[in-house]
Design a binder for these strands. Structure first.
Lengths: 189, 189, 189, 189
DNA sequence: CATGAATGAGATTTCATTCAT
DNA sequence: TATGAATGAAATCTCATTCAT
């Protein structure tokens, strides 16, 4: 692992454990086993480190979310796949999930990074827009559908990570999906 | 307005503008028009100030949410009322809403304050539990229903505050409600 | 002596011994016998400290230079008085003299401070302009005369401080004056 | 241009723009288009770079100042030539002039470099000493005459570079010369 | 000769908190 | 109650210099 990667790894871990502000760059460097100067050799500031991390995390997330979603599936099947992918991403990479939550509400958000990150999501907006146009989903506004859908996904991940007992996992997973789908789809005639 | 209140007001404003960590106590004191010592006379630490604020905000919020919810209404009507109250609280007190979001993900959370805050919500859990027991709602677990419901509420407030155009307000409000209700209720036979 | 004054005194001494850049604020604080935070309580930055010092030094200098210069004296006598005052200022306050030299060529110059400092010198410009208008001095441009005159003054102070042997003091003082006066005055017919 | 020369050129430019302390070696290397290591391959330290630059600049300066000064001229004519050469050097190579001023007052002065630099000036001291011995100049001390003369030269260059308007150039040049000569020469009988 | 990643001491500045008045 | 000067630990970031390639 290069020093560059060691720094990223230590930063992700410490940021999600203690938060951006409670994690000094000195501690990141120490945990990564490099000198403080080395951190700033690779990332010109703490801000840049955080935003670079955000882009990397988002990239890995979206790669995971899009997996197995193919054009021949029905809209419902594609959304189901997205749901499954999203929840399992959160459970497999809880640190990345927590990083994400923290980043969204933080003052470290860099507009450029945010835009770059959102570009990856285009395929999701397209999916929702398609459903909106066909009248299968509730709203004509893909961004609103996105807000609702992602809110539900994040909330269910949070629940599973913090309060889900192993024996309920499957039920929550399934109930979650039904909530998600019912929340988005237009009501049947 | 007492100095105590001035401090609380300035703190709420600055915290929601810049975040907890980016808001020095010295600036709160200055904006409140008091000396730094005075702030620490009323609140023994920054932590205590934040948690006192949290409790105050939560109290006001819950008072608002519970307004007009009466035992004689159907479950659906009561939830509808909660929905309406929640969204309008967010739009009427955006600073308090933002304070809330920030607090939840912060390291300033004080367990005692959190518990005290959640106690206020008991009536909501009861409401959801009742629906669960009757089979009107999707899950048997009120805490899961709460997670889903509150996630949707927060997301819709966020959307209305940041991206809602005035002409769409009503549609979003209504679509939001349908998503909320469809997400929570058991499917019709 | 107040802490404010102690800081100024220590700063002036260290700056002239080692230069602005080689004098850390931490050392100034230590020599002044205060905490680092105290320095920044009184001066918001190192820059501000340097510029505050500049204004204070310039004020004291000009007060000294103008001493005993009265309207009833001939132009030559007034310039003679300015010369004597200037050189003796330099010898009496070598640290302030050195601070001055250093400040002029430094990147810490703050335009506002510089202007404020130059305002004090107005009476000198007026003096030179009077001589220029009367044809007693060499140029019609007071600012050029000022440049030449102050350059000579500074150079002679420097010479006296670094290389003047005690037995030559009087000769240098006198020769210096003649150079100064000859450099400025128009040639006799 | 060799890398060695590129480094010197970039260093001279940056030092005179921003000052020694505000110019990191890394920036010099970048502007010179070489790696940081390369700079230290040619100059063992920043100190050495500055002093090497000083010697090179002084060499070029003295070569220029001595130009056209011949033994058959009168003392006055030789000093006149030195004056003209000095001022035109300053106007032709403002960066070198500024480097010079900065170096003199800096803590980077290296005694060896300083001595080496002053050795070049021997001919000027000789010139002044000759005038002193003949009674043509004001003092018997060549070093004092040098201080006064060089102070005036530097001041006039500074004036021409920063405040001289094109239409006044000739007048300043001429008035400057008369000040210089009057300041140095013994008074006519 | 040339490279540039790596180093770590050190610089400036911030800030929650105290305490004498 | 209220004040605000004073504190000093700690944070981010800089930079001359080294050294393995």
């Amino acid at each position: 692992m290069t020093k560059f990667e060691k720094i990223q790894e230590a930063a992700l871990r410490l940021f999600t454990e203690d938060g951006f502000d409670a994690t000094p760059t000195s501690r990141i460097a120490k945990e990564a086993g490099v000198a403080t100067g080395t951190l700033f050799h690779h990332f010109s500031s703490k801000d840049e480190l955080i935003n670079a991390l955000y882009i990397a995390v988002k990239e890995r997330m979206i790669e995971r979310i899009a997996r197995g979603v193919t054009a021949d599936q029905s809209l419902r099947d594609r959304l189901r796949q997205v749901w499954v992918n999203s929840i399992s991403w959160g459970l497999d990479f809880p640190a990345e999930y927590r990083f994400f939550r923290q980043y969204s509400g933080s003052r470290y958000i860099n507009d450029k990074a945010k835009e770059e990150g959102e570009a990856y999501l285009q395929f999701l907006f397209d999916l929702l827009q398609e459903g909106a146009d066909d009248g299968v989903l509730k709203s004509t506004d893909a961004s609103f559908l996105y807000a609702i859908g992602s809110g539900l996904v994040m909330e269910v991940i949070q629940y599973l990570l913090t309060r889900g007992k192993p024996e309920n996992q499957d039920a929550i997973w399934e109930t979650g999906w039904r909530s998600f789908w019912d929340a988005l789809r237009a009501r049947e005639a």
